[in-house]
Every structure is written in structure tokens, then in C-alpha cells.
């Protein structure tokens, strides 16, 4: 209790500049990040959407459809697509025709298949 009173007394005797620093400091930190938030949430989104719409118009796509396609796209969807493609391309070699072909080689003569060398000449 005594300590609380002492601290309260000390708080009153603090330099007014200290309170100014706190109020201005907290205010500026919030303001700075708020401005960045507003910029990226509204201004940049507006610019990018505008760009997307004009691109869609050029390509003859409905701008509203292009915007919806952009907004529903999430990192998880991308990850799933990427994984599917990865697995598809990695498993390509597993898809075989199932036909085993032995290519016959006909040669006139080869000592490896010579009947003469495979028999005991008694």
C-alpha cells in the first residue's frame, strides 16, 4: 500500500515530457501501421483489382468472374494443386504398358550361342 502511494506520488512528479513521449509514441506506432494497413487493405487492392479487371476485359473474360477467381484462391488450394502436380509427374514412370517384349536378335554366327561350345566333344 505504502509502495503504491509512493509510486503514485512519483508518477505525479514525472517530467511531462515522459507522458508526451508515451502518448505520441503509442500514437505514432499505431498510426504508422494503420496507414500501412489502409494502404495494403484498400488502396493496393483497388489498384490490383483495377489492373485485373482491365486485363480480363482485354481477354474477353467477365471482370467479376476474374475477381472471384482471384479472391477464392488461397495458399492451401495452391499447395493442394502443387502437390497433385508433383505426385502426377513423379509417378509417371509407374504407368507402364504392361507388355514385355523380348527382341529377338538373329545373327548368322555368335560363339555365345554356338552349339559347338556348349557340348562336350567326346
Amino acid at each position: 500500500m505504502m509502495q503504491t502511494l509512493l509510486l503514485a506520488g512519483a508518477a505525479e512528479s514525472l517530467d511531462p515530457l515522459a507522458w508526451t513521449i508515451v502518448v505520441v509514441g503509442v500514437g505514432i506506432v499505431f498510426l504508422s501501421l494503420l496507414i500501412v494497413y489502409i494502404f495494403f487493405r484498400y488502396i493496393l487492392t483497388f489498384i490490383l483489382n483495377f489492373k485485373l479487371k482491365s486485363f480480363a476485359r482485354k481477354k474477353g473474360i467477365d471482370p467479376a468472374e476474374a475477381l472471384t477467381a482471384k479472391t477464392i484462391q488461397s495458399g492451401e488450394v495452391n499447395a493442394a494443386i502443387a502437390m497433385a502436380l508433383y505426385r502426377y509427374f513423379n509417378e509417371l514412370h509407374d504407368v507402364e504398358s504392361g507388355v514385355i517384349t523380348i527382341k529377338r536378335v538373329s545373327r548368322h554366327y555368335s560363339p555365345w550361342s554356338s552349339k559347338l561350345y556348349n557340348m562336350n566333344n567326346l
Binding site: 512519483a10 503509442v26 499505431f30 504508422s32 494503420l34 500501412v36
Partner: peptide, 20 residues
């Protein structure tokens, strides 16, 4: 971003504490 701003309260309250 605003959560990053809110957590900076620790800096300014400690500043007052250190002055006290």
C-alpha cells in the same frame, strides 16, 4: 499489423516504470 502495434505498449509502459 495492428497486433504488432499493440504489443509495443510494453516498451512505453516500461519506459515509465524505469523513470519511476
Amino acid at each position: 499489423l495492428l497486433l504488432g502495434a499493440a504489443a509495443q505498449m510494453g516498451i512505453f509502459i516500461t519506459f515509465i516504470g524505469a523513470l519511476l
